[in-house]
Amino acid sequence: MWNRPITAALLAVGMMASSSAMAEAPAPYQVTPELEAAAKAEGKVVFYTATDVTVAEKLAELFKTKYPEITVQVERAGSERVFQRIGQEYSTGIYNADVIETSDAVHFAYFKREGWLEPMVPQEVADKWPADERDPDGNFAAYRAHLSVIAYRSDLLPDAEAPKTWEDLLDPRFKGKMVKAHPGYSGTVMTATFALTSLLGWDYFEKLGTQDVMQVQSSTEPPKKLAQGERVLEVDGNEYNVFRLQDEGVPIKIVYPEAGTPLAVGNAAVLAHAPNPNAAKLFYSFLFSLEAQQLNSDFGGLRSFHPDVKEKEGRLPISQIKLLHSDPAQLEPEILTIKSNYEKYFGT
């Protein structure tokens, strides 16, 4: 038994060595006229995404105004279903997708390990992105980030009665009033569930499960259920959907508990067997451009790692929020446990 630590240490050293050897990301690329021409010749790019469908379509529209010759096929589903789909497709040798994006960081570690990604680094990412928000090997980079937030209908729930902490949600007065997305479906909620179980433990969820919570699938849905007036309070859900509804005039307010709010980082990457490799490369670089990132922020309410993106007024800057990070490497082995515990406490 004594040699175990040594083995582990050796392994760790070995892994570090190999990763530092591998950590030679390809040289950053710029959009050249040749690339544009080749992309136009392909005429199409297929984008698998987990971003809200209206935001993703808006982004595609912006791309089309720049390159009318290239159609963008947006395939939107929840992160876990995007993952399920690409997994089914790649393991059966079907290569439909060019660019992929989900809000579950674990996926990209998995894709990278399987060799499903084509390493490439747009110039913008090389110049502007913080080092820990992109893969050292250049396989993927953080395209967007958002928080999974508690929010409530301010017209139906007076501010004084609104929850302030995570524990407040266990109060019987919120029984039957809450809505929540599912970790088996939403990468954001999977990440958030992991962060919250580390912070509060599973017994928190066990108690929450007795609160008669309405269960929806995607983390884009709870804010919409608030807007419909179906429930007054969401346990989790995308901050950016709340921003968008606020912009439309729906009376919703966000709660950022002192203990912290889970952060979900959405990576994007180009797939190794992209059927339209040049269009993919062009679109991928476009995704990180200031223009696209600013649109994500303004129209989509997403947080950006691009330092020049200006946040809309009235939104709390991310620097003033206590964030709960989750490490994808620690989350990955927990996924099955999270799913089965969740089913135990919430029924699905």
């Binding site: 469908v53 929840g78 699938q217 884009t220 849905e221 419909q228």
Partner: peptide
């Protein structure tokens, strides 16, 4: 079905 999951009634 996909749109239902993201609540776009």
């Amino acid at each position: 079905y996909d749109l239902n999951e993201s609540g776009d009634l």
